[in-house]
Design a protein around this nucleic acid. Structure first.
Length: 518
RNA sequence: GGCCCGUUGGUCAAGAGGUUAAGACACGAGCCUUUCACGCUCGUAACGGGGGUUCGAUUCCCCCACGGGUCACCA
């Protein structure tokens, strides 16, 4: 697969620095290496999944490597449960990683919490070179100064007061028991330009960037520092991430420069917003991949939908097989503007994959939903499998999620205990309705062989013989045997139910009509 | 508030100076049909506002408005 636009893929900064890039490793020369680096502080969000997907697609398109790294430097909020959930969700979506947790790779470890010496080493280098310094201000002092600055209408930037401390100052401060942080000494003039593959050049005045913290007083690096060290060490070629990181990028570039690292290419993909245009959050309903899985969405549907959010294929077809998406994917066709997340389209796509997917696979995926509703035993006896499979084949055309499959299939596995209100009024209140069901029952009982074709013939001849429309006979029957007014073909239902059940339900409906409507 | 990004129908989006401004979802009508879906046909609906540049701007430039992001010892 050839790179469509050489220039756009490899920014000028790289082309002019080919030599030092070569020095890094012949092994990865010109190889696309991307990463997805979630922090394990929650479930895999739909936005995170989209970012992961774009990275994955980019890697697969270019036959590069997709690295999964866990950014767990926030010891307060990181959890084991979240870590596991993210890995599970990635696997479920089919976003397999070439290097990362549970997989390994030559640039590991892939958990930042296991790479602390690396960050310490690089931070020490910065300190020695005078590019970073110790700051003894406490969280409280900083908060107070920030508050005051804002009250006076000044930008709430760190005032750099520890930047030029004398050794004596430091000794004094340390004796007070203060634990220092490390701050980067940011140039006070000049401009830092982010060469973004999606947005073009974005310039930031260095004067608007304060001496941000690269190491916390608890000995952990901050995101803006650790991510740079790792992206460099892991030889990441393209950093593809959400737009919310665009304003972090100049800071990171400053770190790259201080550390004398080669710059990777950057690409900031648009955000995904809730229908009210605000940032997607729990109050907007399901936002995690896990929730969608539990509601009965198929991974391929989510992938397909997410690919369409912020990226567009060249043709008009929007249901696209994964291989095709990989083949077509390019950063050039990623849009710049934020997209609103619309579950209607996701649901439509899901319905498509539900109908078209391999029946055995769909059956296997739907089974837990049926079992959760108590409709089927767990485990399902081997001998019942074919029947379940046939029922799913009959109902999947008219639903959009696996949860709906279970709902639509319920009466195949449990008794009809009630009849739809609307159906009662339309089909059971007609004079002679009970007698008609009795008559139909006799015809079916008399059939030498019971199947959809035979039942349909019997029904059509009965309707003809009585001079009534087929609908007048079909509708009450449907209500009697399924309790509903809609569903698969009537005779398909009958065959699936079997003669015994059909006759019993017809009897029961006739009795119900006589008792309740006569 | 400072800085940064963005603005094509309700939503996703194509188009990048001259087009009847694609397509998809949703919505509406019809066809198919024993019902509901599916499918098919048709339809409603958009270039935020104001200035420039140009023979001509949705497309290029500027301003404004609006939306979003970010300004943490979170990532």
């Amino acid at each position: 697969m050839l790179v469509p636009s050489r220039r756009r893929l490899w920014p000028a900064a790289w082309q002019t620095n080919t030599r030092s890039y070569l020095d890094r490793s012949v092994d990865t020369l010109n190889k696309v290496r991307v990463r997805f680096a979630p922090s394990p502080t929650g479930s895999l969000h739909i936005g995170g999944a989209r970012t992961a997907l774009f990275n994955w697609l980019f890697a697969r398109h270019h036959h590069g490597a997709f690295v999964l790294r866990i950014d767990d430097t926030d010891t307060e909020r990181s959890t084991e449960a979240s870590y596991k959930e993210i890995l599970t969700a990635m696997g479920w979506l089919g976003l397999d990683w070439d290097e990362g947790p549970e997989k390994g790779g030559q640039f590991g470890p892939y958990l930042q919490s296991q790479r602390l010496e690396l960050y310490r080493r690089e931070a020490a280098r910065l300190l020695n070179e005078g590019k970073a310094y110790l700051c003894y201000c406490t969280v409280e002092e900083l908060a107070e100064r920030r508050r005051q600055a804002q009250a006076e209408g000044r930008p709430p930037m760190y005032d750099r007061r520890c930047r030029y401390l004398t050794p004596a100052d430091r000794t004094r401060l340390e004796q007070e028991g203060r634990q220092p942080v490390i701050r980067l000494a940011v140039p006070e003039t000049g401009t830092t330009v982010v060469k973004d593959l999606i947005r073009g050049d974005v310039a930031f005045e260095n004067a608007t960037i304060d001496d941000f913290i690269i190491f916390k007083s608890n000995g952990m690096p901050t995101y803006n520092f650790a991510t740079v060290v790792d992206d460099h060490l892991m030889q990441i070629s393209h950093i593809i991430r959400a737009e919310e990181h665009l304003s972090n990028t100049p800071k990171q570039i400053l770190v790259y420069q201080a550390l004398a690292y080669e710059l990777p290419a950057f690409a900031h993909v648009p955000m995904i917003l809730a229908p009210d245009r605000s940032k997607l959050s729990k109050r907007h309903g399901a936002t995690s991949v896990e929730e969608y899985r539990d509601e009965g969405y198929l991974p391929e549907a989510i992938i397909n939908y997410l690919a369409l959010l912020g990226w567009s294929p060249e043709g008009e077809e929007e249901i696209i097989p994964l291989e095709e998406i990989i083949e077509q994917f390019s950063l050039e066709r990623v849009s710049k503007n934020a997209a609103i997340y619309d579950t209607k389209k996701l649901t439509w796509i899901n319905g498509h994959y539900l109908r078209e997917g391999n029946l055995d696979r769909i059956t296997r995926l739907a089974l837990p939903f049926l079992q959760a509703k108590g409709l089927l035993p767990d485990p399902l006896p081997e001998k019942d499998y074919n029947h379940v499979r046939s029922v799913i084949a009959a109902v999947r055309d008219r639903v959009k999620t696996l949860a709906e499959v279970a709902d639509a299939a319920s009466y195949f596995f449990t008794d009809v205990t009630s009849y739809e209100e609307k159906g009662i009024r339309k089909h059971f209140t007609r004079p002679g309705a009970a007698a008609l069901l009795d008559e139909a029952r006799e015809r079916l009982a008399a059939l030498p062989e019971f199947n959809a074709r035979a039942a349909e013939e019997a029904y059509r001849s009965l309707a003809e013989g009585k001079g009534i429309s087929t609908g007048q006979l079909f509708h009450p029957t449907r209500l009697a045997i399924s309790g509903r007014t809609m569903g698969p073909g009537l005779f398909e239902i009958m065959e699936l139910l079997g003669r015994e059940t059909v006759l019993a339900r017809l009897d029961r409906a006739a009795r119900w009509i006589r008792e309740n409507l006569a």
